[in-house]
């Protein structure tokens, strides 16, 4: 592992200032992405600014929203009564991710900014447009069974790995930030960028911009919600396909629905086409399957990951059936 310098910040402004003025520096939260990738030489900061002492760990119910501090741990957020009752899909997504140890370490802000699990990204010997812009994409013609079928480009097909971000995408969350200049806020749809021609740009944050909190608007329909994760092992594995869903019925018809997909796209994928078809439809298997088919209509699979197109549709149907 490369040599590093270290600073611990106890005030938000100090942390933001320290990282902003030093292009070689990065924030250290739970470290479960940062230290891992430093050791692989994938990330190469010269200085870490430890933000674990910042007062950003709260989980607060405010008027019209739940506000989760960027440094709240995945385990604490999943266990919070307000999250469990108001947003079961988020609690489930968090508990389906990583392991108990990692969830005690990993923070919500870090979770959004975790890096892709693409093997070529993690291997500094391989070409990868995300790690080294312009070097090519090892996955396009390589081992890409786990890669994305939606939102891909000819420059990158890596899947966004976060589970929690899929639930937050279904919930229209907003990401709040601080810079040396002031405050920012991003709707989650704008927070994750498609790879396009610039796969190294994964989010709109400037260097040094600190995530301070994640705001989830009140979503009464989310009380009837679920997170379904399909993977190669029963636990402690990233998703092949996942579905975050909320469903509300009135007299057998769908009066409210939110759908987001994980494991299949280059960003947490809000299934708006499916939502539009479902709204007002009957809550039956045929309607669910048709909406799922429509959402996956533009899928661009590789021979190795073509199974995801069917798997994702079945997962959507199963998730919705469990809520109907």
């Amino acid at each position: 592992m490369r040599p590093l310098t270290y600073s611990r910040a106890s005030a938000v402004a100090d942390a933001v200032h320290a990282v902003t003025v030093d292009p070689e520096s990065a924030y250290l939260a739970g470290g479960t992405t940062e230290i891992d990738l430093l050791r692989q030489d994938v990330l190469t900061p010269g200085r870490l600014v430890d933000i674990n002492d910042l007062p950003l760990t709260g989980i607060e119910e405010t008027r019209g929203a739940l506000v989760i501090g960027a440094l709240a741990r995945m385990s604490d957020v999943a266990a919070a009564p307000a999250v469990r009752t108001r947003y079961p899909l988020l609690a489930q997504a968090l508990e389906a991710g990583a392991s108990a140890q990692l969830r005690h370490m990993a923070t919500m802000g870090g979770n959004l900014l975790q890096r892709v699990r693409c093997g070529y990204f993690r291997d500094t010997e391989s070409p990868c447009n995300k790690r080294r812009p312009g070097s090519g994409c090892g996955a396009l013609t390589g081992v890409n069974r786990g890669h994305a079928v939606l939102g891909t480009s000819e420059h990158c097909i890596a899947t966004h790995p976060s589970d929690a971000a899929v639930a937050l995408t279904a919930l229209d969350a907003r990401v709040h930030t601080r810079t040396t200049a002031g405050h920012g806020a991003y709707h989650i749809d704008d927070f994750f960028l498609l790879p396009g021609d610039t796969p190294h740009r994964e989010h709109p944050l400037e260097h040094g911009e600190l995530i301070t909190s994640i705001e989830i608007p009140d979503t009464p329909t989310a009380r009837n919600s679920t997170y379904l994760k399909v993977r190669d092992r029963a636990s402690y594995e990233f998703a092949l396909v996942s579905v975050a869903a909320t469903l509300q019925l009135e007299q057998g018809r769908i009066s409210g629905v939110r759908l987001a997909l994980g494991g299949v796209a280059t960003k947490p994928w809000r299934a708006r086409r499916a939502e539009r078809l479902l709204l007002g439809a009957g809550a039956d298997r045929r309607a669910f399957a048709e909406a799922a088919r429509e959402e996956l209509a533009d899928a661009a699979p590789t021979p190795m990951n073509a199974f995801k197109v069917e798997l994702a549709q079945r997962a959507v149907v199963r998730a919705l059936e469990s809520l109907a």
Partner: peptide, 18 residues
């Protein structure tokens, strides 16, 4: 409801020990 960061107040903190 996305806003790029807007200036609210300047920061005037010293450097952190390295």
């Amino acid at each position: 409801t996305t806003q790029k960061p807007t200036a609210t107040r300047p920061t005037d903190t010293g450097p952190l020990p390295v």
